[in-house]
């Protein structure tokens, strides 16, 4: 299976491997607290490599495939314009600077990790970071609640209980929960169509 390379539909010239690297480099370095908004800004509004619809389409595919979403997006966008080399350039671009920065920050921090000020600051930041994740969970759960999608809500609670409460390994938990959730929605959608 080979990739069919397609130029941008927005009338922009085909991005080169070099440009793909630089484009994703700018996403990586700007993406504080979640890179997806910056990915959209760069791909759709600044460089216009994708139309808004193409971006949503690529995003839904990257969420469907396992793995880190934004890296998968770099793979898909790079592949579309420049094949395997494009994918490689996208992934290298988005990862290079953040990896250097986070390892540098960690190393610096370890030099002063005994200082009470640093211990305190990390405590405070950790509490906030935990709150960020709780807020994300609530934000994602709200539309499910608003739609009164009780089937989804049941599976959400089952997954919290299995993985967060009982601390079951993820693979067997998902092997049960995902097929069951899909089957339940399949039946429900079939019932509504009738």
């Amino acid at each position: 299976m080979t990739q069919v390379r397609q130029p941008p539909t927005t009338g922009i010239a085909m991005p080169s491997v070099h440009e793909i690297f630089l484009g994703f480099f700018s996403i990586g370095i700007n993406g504080f607290g979640g890179v997806m908004p910056f990915a959209r800004l760069m791909l759709v509004e600044q460089r216009r490599w994708l139309s808004a619809d193409e971006f949503l389409d690529a995003l839904s595919m990257c969420q469907f495939v396992p793995g880190p979403n934004v890296v998968n997006l770099a793979v898909a966008v790079g592949a579309r314009f420049q094949g395997p080399l494009g994918s490689l350039a996208g992934v290298a671009g988005i990862m290079a600077a953040p990896m250097v920065i986070v390892i540098g920050a960690y190393t610096l921090l370890m030099q002063v990790s005994e200082a009470p000020v640093v211990i305190g600051a990390l405590r405070g930041m950790s509490a906030v970071a935990a709150g960020l994740v709780v807020a994300l969970g609530v934000k994602l759960a709200l539309p499910v609640l608003r739609k009164k999608d009780w089937i989804s809500l049941g599976f959400t609670l089952a997954s919290v209980g299995a993985v967060g409460g009982l601390r079951l390994p993820l693979l067997p938990a998902l092997a049960v929960l995902i097929p069951a959730a899909i089957a339940a929605h399949w039946w429900a959608m079939k019932g509504r169509a009738r």
Binding site: F64, L136, T156, G164, L170, H185
Partner: peptide, 27 residues
């Protein structure tokens, strides 16, 4: 559609579980 809705329901639970575990570790 059922595959995406089903996967989403489970994923939201995983993210909520992540939040609970991180709060427990950092509180």
């Amino acid at each position: 559609a059922p595959v995406q809705t089903g996967m989403n329901a489970v994923t939201v639970g995983l993210i909520a579980a992540a939040g609970i575990l991180l709060v427990r570790a950092s509180a």
